[in-house]
Design a protein around this nucleic acid. Structure first.
Lengths: 351, 351
DNA sequence: GTGGTCTACCCAAACGTTTGGGTAGCACTG
DNA sequence: CAGTGCTACCCAAACGTTTGGGTAGACCAC
């Protein structure tokens, strides 16, 4: 009578059992474990009959019933600053794929990098009884993480790291170093950094890697040449304007720790009538799909975003098995494009 | 002995009942319904004691247990072509917020616009027993949708529409018309359209709106000036190259039905030494956050993406109540920027 | 003092699984 | 032929809720 979605979809273990004249537990065991537990639960013949009927009736186990009993939901909670940040969206795609492969489903929520929202979203996920959390918006001060540890909530970090906790990230220090090496080699001696948000390891590590390598190459750079900013385009533009209007000698190259910030900085340069790549080199980070397609293609550090997401799933899986996995840092690669190579190219052409 | 996440988190209805010397069902009724059913279930005094203890013990109901009983999971499944498409990511943010407000949680998966994946992902969501689906990747041929209807699966469309099904979209026809009107007014007479994927209503409607208005204004445009393409930057670039190398007179304006495609087209123009805005006007669609921040800011039709997501949640809510809601089309707004206004500005300046 | 109407609860069954612990029957073994 | 060890099952309880249907007692009216 009910017109709910039961167009045959609601066939239960019990139904199968009744139809086969066998006990539900037998059906469960057969369908449950590939063949490890199945052996000993039923004869090969019965097992086949069970599987056959299950297929025929389109049986699909009820996950809520199962988790009620097993106390595991096969649900993963993912918290990100915002999904509309392309970088996090791609990491989430990696999570989505990888978790499906191991029989988990992922849930994602935005925290907007606001500590209250982080807490609220985590509580929402725990209320849904997720088995574990993948946290993509960790702040370096990490009070929340300690709290989660105390509450014995299984979690791993992704994208940003905090020492002492398992995490899947890009090796951002190396990424920063790559940029410093590149710009130095291109002959730049006066540079500025758009450093991102100081609470994010991505920003801090990329900046630190850059500065360390820069100085070890013999370069000088003062703290005034490092501007912290939001990760988005508007933040990059503001930071770019600040750099250009500082009254200090204009840098010949700018490293923005994020492609969007780099795009914003390009806007600021252009607004001053400066040509990106010729007057001022710009380098971004993440190599988002846009970087290569911009009117002036952007040199950027490629970070394996989808793989970071996939790795995070492996890590949380390990945590759920009771292990204490080490942080994983994936290798970045520098892609040099016109935004930092145009001048060299122009000089070549001049010869 | 178990070291699971039960740091007090696992307090059940039964625990509360025992501690209060009252029956679990009483506790359930008190905590369940704000005050409608609660009245009659317990005295005001008892109700208060229950609520008090629940708060004190940090009681949080087990959703799987509840849905096992109620046959409703309060879960919404969302299917999008890809979450790394900024447009869909923002719509999803709207869904996420709106669904949380009504006590639902949303799940999202990518289909990559591949019919097999669409089907697979839908099955995954139904296996998770979502109460309803929000489909963001509907194809105009809509075989899948008919199938879902037959299976009595509650769903609504978002982003793209298909006649006959409830949907939350931007009024893309009007959006296309706005662009035609703008370009015509700017004096363009030779234009081309990068039309997107022919299976998506967004592409078809925007293109149709543009063409209809263009012709009704007296403009002419041949089918050869309409190139179908992928929605991403690379697709836009290819389409742009095709337009420029067609041997036909070069258009003075290009309308790409998607910002990313527009950016790709800008790349193609630039590669030919043409200046966007001066030599060729470019207009995009969606007004993604990048549009305004590009080196040459992009004229774009703003579509209220987050609101579309929120609306989709309202619609599925209605469907779940057994209603048959009408499609909702939200108003687009044209934002004129340098990519289509530079020439006019330059001419002004010349006087 | 019987009948009726409330109030404030309690009871028990159900939802669909999983899982520890049987056990009946059979084949061997010594 | 008692004992041992399989195999191939069955049984029942449990997981944490929700909900239709009681019912005991209080109060009131007639």
């Amino acid at each position: 009578m009910k017109e709910k979605a039961d167009g045959g979809g609601t066939v239960t273990l019990k139904d199968l059992a009744r139809e086969l004249g066998v006990h539900p537990s037998t059906v469960s065991r057969v369908l449950h474990s590939g063949s490890d537990v199945a052996k000993g639960a039923a004869s090969a013949a019965t097992a086949e009959r069970v599987r056959e009927l299950a297929r025929k009736r389109g049986y699909s186990p009820d996950p809520q019933a199962a988790s009620l009993r097993t106390r595991r939901t096969k649900l993963l909670g993912v918290i990100v600053p915002r999904l509309s940040d392309l970088v996090l969206a791609i990491m989430y795609e990696g999570i989505d794929e990888a978790s499906a492969e191991v029989g988990y489903s992922a849930f994602v929520m935005n925290s907007r990098d606001d500590p209250n929202e982080q807490r609220r979203k985590i509580d929402l996920m725990l209320a849904r009884r997720v088995d574990g959390l993948i946290i993509g918006d960790a702040h370096l001060d990490g009070g929340l993480l300690q709290e989660l540890t105390d509450r014995k909530v299984p979690f791993v970090l992704m994208n940003r790291r905090v020492t002492g906790y398992p995490s899947a990230t890009c090796d951002d220090v190396v990424g920063g170093e790559l940029v410093a090496g590149h710009l130095w080699k291109m002959g730049h001696r006066q540079v500025a950094v758009i450093a991102g948000e100081p609470y994010a390891s991505t920003a801090v590590d990329r900046t630190a890697g850059f500065l360390d390598r820069w100085r070890s190459l013999g370069g000088t750079i003062s703290d005034d040449d490092v501007v912290w900013s939001r990760f988005d385009t508007a933040g990059g533009r503001e930071a770019g304007e600040k750099i250009l209007s500082s009254g200090r000698p204009r840098p010949t190259a700018i490293f923005a720790v994020n492609d969007f910030a780099a795009i914003g900085a390009m806007g600021a340069l252009r607004a001053r009538g400066l040509t990106v790549g010729l007057d001022v080199a710009v380098v971004g980070y993440n190599d988002t799909s846009l970087a290569a397609e911009l009117p002036i293609p952007l040199t950027s550090v490629h970070s394996p975003m989808a793989d970071i997401g996939r790795t995070a799933v492996q890590l949380i899986q390990a945590v759920l098995r009771g292990e204490k996995p080490e942080p994983v840092q994936l290798e970045p690669t520098l892609f040099v494009r016109e935004s930092s190579a145009a001048r060299a190219a122009a000089e070549m052409a001049a010869n």
